[in-house]
Nucleic acid binder design. Structure first.
Lengths: 154, 154
DNA sequence: ATCCCTGCAAATCGTTTGCATTGTA
DNA sequence: TACAATGCAAACGATTTGCAGGGAT
């Protein structure tokens, strides 16, 4: 919790631009609530849950509803501006910094999610397509275990 | 639908044995309902949903409840006798033939799931562990797209 | 003035739980 | 006879939807 976080990372502003731009191009309005969601997505590497996003938005706009957050996320997904990591029993988590599919490491104890640089999974996707006959358009590659911090505590 | 399916695949009986054995070793009773679930899991390659399993069990035991199916699946999971493929928006699907994690191809149109032989993902898991610092215990590697049949229709 | 967006509440859906009843070892 | 498993219904949690009111173009 008391981790030095050098304020919103760089590239943050740029990412926000990209996202608002995408909204406008799609003929969507950039409302204050939506902007708030965008900023959170662009500024956090922790793959926040809907609830987490909601809490943060609500700090700035206390009347915001969860439904609006959901609707905003749905739209951003459709514009490929956010990646949804859908987990079965723990609700979804969202990645707005790197909106294209890539592998994640998920901590089963604290829920932390990391996305280290990995060799591209395209090869695997291609191999999968070849062997299955499926046309592969997307993927979700999740690795589950314990994050470094939780390994110590365990 | 009219695919030649040479009746319950071979190894079927053997798999059933394994599973019942696992139950007994865990001090669990092999009730008729549970056996019915086992058989379905051992005999189908289609990664059935809970609902599908339930329907089939209900054919043989009309009074069976969905809760019992869920409870049975939960137990089999804990014994590592079935693999749960947890999808966010579409409920879970189950693999009782190959209960250890392996990549799947999922058809976004009809829901078909294939698990072609693939080079082991252990390397990728190890790489992920190395780069993330996580201790990796499990994974779920899903590739989404269109199955061969749906490609034609599309 | 129109049309989109918001926010609230109610509805859904998959899954889980509590508990009385039943069946089995 | 005990004790575990079943079945039903109620509870749950995440997400979606319907709709009236409010804002922005």
């Amino acid at each position: 919790m008391s981790k030095r976080r050098p304020a919103p990372p760089q590239g943050n502003q740029q990412r926000i631009e990209e996202m608002t731009q995408a909204l406008r191009e799609a003929g969507q309005r950039v409302t204050p609530q939506r902007l708030a969601v965008l900023k959170i997505l662009a500024g956090s590497s922790e793959h926040p849950s809907v609830e987490k996003i909601y809490e943060q938005v609500a700090r700035e706009f206390p009347t915001t509803s969860l439904a609006t957050v959901y609707k905003t996320l749905t739209m951003l997904k459709s514009l490929n501006q956010v990646l949804e990591l859908g987990f079965a029993h723990w609700g979804s988590r969202y990645d707005g910094k790197t909106p294209h599919p890539h592998p994640h490491a998920v901590c089963l104890r604290c829920g932390a999610i990391a996305d280290p640089d990995m060799p591209p999974a395209e090869d695997m996707a291609r191999e999968m397509a070849r062997r299955s006959g499926y046309r592969i358009d997307a993927h979700q590659l999740d690795f589950f275990g314990l994050c470094p911090r939780c390994q110590k505590k365990a």
